[in-house]
Simulated scan of single mutants.
Amino acid sequence: MSNRTADASTPTFSLEWPRAYGGCAGRAEFKREPADFVVEEQLGFEPEGEGEHLFLQIEKQGHNTEWLARQLAKWCEVHPRDVSFSGLKDRQAITTQWFGVQLPGRPDPDLSAFEEPGLRILQARRHPRKLRRGVHRGNRFRIRLRRFEGDADALVAQLQRIAEEGYPNYFGEQRFGFAGGNLGEALRLFRGEIRVRDRARRSIYLSAARSWLFNQLLAERVEAGCWNRYREGDLPGFFGNQSLVRADRVDEDILAKFEQRELCPTGPLWGRGELSTGDGVAEQERQLAARHPDLCSGLEAAGMKQERRRLVARAAGLSWNFEGDELLLSFELESGGYATALLRELVDTE
């Protein structure tokens, strides 16, 4: 793959999107130490205790998920494709997550022999099925923001609204690479300027393009004040699962569920196929595609299919506490939610 930099024909992709609750209440330091960002993956089911897949719950610090998967493959003497995980976790943090190693007809390896600084195996259990991407229920976060400067009363008011109403379900900036570089590479891929044989790298570029388009649509609705409200033609999605309500089946009962915050609007993850929304919502989504034809046509040509993502994220069990000029946050997000998208509603951490 070529490493040349993007030329003048490559557009600049903005990673600035509007906030829902009036902008940041101040500034703070984030992730000064790994212990300031603690993430615990919530698997959502118990491994059954038998089967050809060995599930390992591992606490890590200073290592990224993909590196650890490769180390597990070497340790267990299997091909890297036989090691799986549900979600990627930050390197600059203390994170706990599950890995799966396929070991058909083989005994468990000696767990005591797997020694690496910054790693600790917490559990090991067998399971009959592979651990697949995105299967975990969610992630529990404990965050410490240091040296807060700003309006503490305004910040608490924002936290109270987020606890009650949720926050815009933006994809986090880490999705787009340093300075949005993954987006430029995606565009070059779609234009045929580069070839990417590595499947993981190609997937990163496709995901970046899809995520940016979604964020653009969500930003329009945040600006219009309807990111968390029903619009005629919306395709509503339930919290807690992937179920959708067809746009032509929205009735008074469905609207009542909106008011009870059991449902929220969804936005497009671009790909092949017809939009399922109706009326003005579908038109807004078609206009988005018309403004970014290279990205949308590239995703379609790559074989991506139309999917939906909720416009609203909920922080379950959100709690907060000040210790001097430090703010401690605790909450749980469903799989696919970004803690950084919540933080950007509150403080500037740059």
Rank of each mutant, 00 (worst) to 15 (best):
M1V: 09
T5F: 08
T5G: 13
A6Y: 00
D7Y: 00
P11R: 07
L15C: 12
L15D: 10
R19W: 14
Y21L: 13
A25E: 03
R27N: 13
F30W: 12
K31P: 10
R32N: 04
E33I: 07
P34N: 02
A35L: 07
A35P: 07
A35C: 14
E41T: 06
L43W: 11
E48H: 00
G49C: 08
E50T: 10
L54V: 08
Q61M: 05
R70L: 11
R70A: 14
A73Y: 05
K74N: 06
E77S: 15
S86I: 00
L88V: 05
R91N: 09
R91S: 02
Q92L: 11
T95A: 03
T95G: 04
Q97K: 09
W98Q: 03
W98T: 00
V101Y: 01
V101T: 06
L103W: 04
P109E: 06
E115N: 10
G118D: 08
I121L: 06
P128D: 01
L131H: 00
R132G: 01
R132M: 02
R132I: 04
R133D: 02
R137H: 12
R137F: 03
R140F: 02
I143D: 13
I143E: 09
G150R: 05
G150P: 09
D153A: 15
V156W: 13
A157Y: 04
I162A: 11
A163H: 14
A163S: 13
A163F: 01
A163L: 12
R175I: 05
F176Q: 05
G184H: 11
E185H: 15
I194N: 13
I194G: 11
D198M: 04
R201I: 09
L206K: 01
S207T: 12
A208T: 12
S211C: 07
S211Q: 05
W212R: 11
W212M: 14
L213F: 05
N215E: 15
L217G: 12
L218F: 12
V222H: 14
E223L: 15
E223H: 09
G233E: 12
D234I: 05
S243G: 07
V245Q: 01
A247G: 13
R249C: 06
D251N: 13
I254N: 06
A256S: 11
A256V: 07
K257D: 06
L263S: 01
C264Y: 05
C264V: 03
R272V: 15
L275K: 00
D279C: 13
R286L: 10
R286I: 03
A290Q: 13
P293F: 03
L295C: 09
C296P: 00
G298I: 06
L299Y: 01
L299T: 08
A301C: 15
E307A: 15
R310A: 06
A313S: 14
S319I: 14
S319K: 09
L329V: 04
S330R: 13
E332V: 06
G336S: 09
R344I: 06
R344W: 09
L346N: 02
D348S: 12
